[in-house]
Simulated assay, not measured.
Amino acid sequence: MNRVISALFWCALALVIAFIALPIVVVFAASLSPTGDVTFRPWEWTVKWYFDLASERWLGPFWLSVKIAIVVSAVSGAIGTVAAYVVVYEKFAGSEVVMAALLSPLSVPQIVKGVAVVLFLSVIGLQPLLGTPALIAGHCVLALPFVVRMVATSIANFDCNLFRAGQILGANQWQRIRFILLPAIKPGVLSGVTFAFIISFNNIPLSVFLVRPGETTLPITVINYLEYSLDPVMAAVNVASMAFILIVIFSFEKLGGFSAQLHGGSK
């Protein structure tokens, strides 16, 4: 009986992995197509389409997406860490309500948030902020709940006796936070920052309302390109984007233990 259950488990796992991996394999194969049409001829595969990514058509939106994602991850990381510390560690009357408010953007569809931001800026006469400023603000609202949740989990798992020990040894509150709490919750902070970066870099539903001509992010550029063409260049853009995101994830994992937080603890 155990062998049957084990076999079923591995079969199900293989099916799930295939379901996730096969689309990626198809896109990668399409990016190596020898012709301008998407074809599957492995014996004629070429990487020439990747050289087209060095054009300003793709580099401009890519660097804009990276800059926005860096600012969003830094701002939402700082605000989310402070908010999680105040709500979870420095508990006060109504902290549950504040936590619910911080997580509330998750319950609102991104399209609704995008329309709301556009209408708000129009009503108060700040339409010129559409573009990079609005994208940064909108992405911060979108990413903040993920940062708060990740950091809150790390703080909840933090051993408060370490804080008391620091206090007994004469460390003030700022020193206890800097040298005891922050190193202990670093996996949670870096997890939240990583999520914020990925969410900002790949966002479409919110960004489509906030971009303006000359300030278009990479995902929106891809969507606009797909309206008129489906060719190996598009597949190469997507493969390069996936590779970039993987590099970001592995970099944060190297810095502070991204996977440790996903398993519910500190590294």
Results as ranks from 00 to 15, higher is better:
46 T>D: 12
43 W>I: 04
62 F>N: 04
21 A>G: 06
44 E>G: 05
25 V>L: 15
44 E>I: 00
29 A>M: 11
34 P>E: 07
42 P>A: 03
52 D>G: 04
42 P>Y: 02
31 S>G: 11
16 V>L: 14
41 R>P: 00
62 F>I: 10
32 L>K: 08
49 W>N: 09
47 V>K: 04
16 V>N: 09
46 T>E: 10
36 G>I: 00
55 S>P: 07
59 L>T: 13
49 W>H: 10
50 Y>L: 11
42 P>N: 03
19 F>W: 15
28 F>P: 08
43 W>M: 09
10 W>I: 06
56 E>Q: 13
26 V>R: 08
24 I>N: 13
44 E>L: 10
27 V>K: 00
11 C>K: 01
9 F>C: 03
45 W>Q: 02
19 F>C: 13
27 V>N: 01
26 V>K: 02
59 L>M: 15
38 V>A: 04
16 V>R: 08
21 A>Y: 03
31 S>I: 01
63 W>R: 08
9 F>S: 06
36 G>H: 00
28 F>W: 07
33 S>R: 00
13 L>T: 09
48 K>V: 14
21 A>T: 10
40 F>W: 11
38 V>S: 08
44 E>Y: 02
24 I>D: 07
17 I>K: 01
23 P>D: 05
21 A>C: 10
12 A>F: 10
32 L>S: 06
49 W>I: 05
58 W>D: 02
21 A>W: 06
26 V>G: 06
38 V>I: 15
48 K>M: 11
10 W>P: 05
17 I>E: 12
36 G>C: 00
34 P>F: 07
62 F>H: 01
32 L>P: 13
35 T>G: 05
46 T>I: 12
51 F>V: 09
19 F>Y: 15
46 T>Y: 02
46 T>P: 12
23 P>R: 03
29 A>L: 12
18 A>W: 07
9 F>D: 05
24 I>L: 15
23 P>M: 03
22 L>H: 01
44 E>W: 02
46 T>C: 10
34 P>T: 00
20 I>C: 12
14 A>D: 08
34 P>S: 06
60 G>I: 09
45 W>G: 15
23 P>K: 02
59 L>V: 13
26 V>Q: 03
57 R>L: 13
42 P>H: 01
52 D>T: 02
63 W>G: 00
50 Y>I: 04
46 T>V: 09
55 S>W: 05
23 P>W: 05
56 E>T: 09
41 R>D: 11
28 F>Y: 06
42 P>E: 03
41 R>N: 12
44 E>D: 13
29 A>D: 04
49 W>C: 10
37 D>Y: 03
39 T>I: 07
25 V>M: 11
33 S>F: 01
37 D>S: 12
49 W>D: 02
54 A>S: 11
48 K>D: 14
30 A>R: 00
61 P>N: 06
55 S>L: 05
9 F>L: 09
31 S>P: 07
44 E>S: 13
8 L>G: 14
59 L>W: 07
27 V>D: 10
25 V>I: 11
58 W>A: 04
41 R>H: 15
38 V>T: 06
8 L>K: 03
47 V>S: 13
44 E>T: 02
14 A>F: 02
21 A>F: 12
13 L>W: 14
10 W>E: 13
17 I>R: 00
47 V>P: 15
16 V>C: 15
45 W>E: 06
47 V>Y: 06
15 L>N: 09
29 A>G: 11
12 A>K: 02
41 R>E: 15
50 Y>C: 11
11 C>L: 15
50 Y>E: 08
59 L>F: 03
17 I>A: 13
52 D>M: 00
22 L>Y: 11
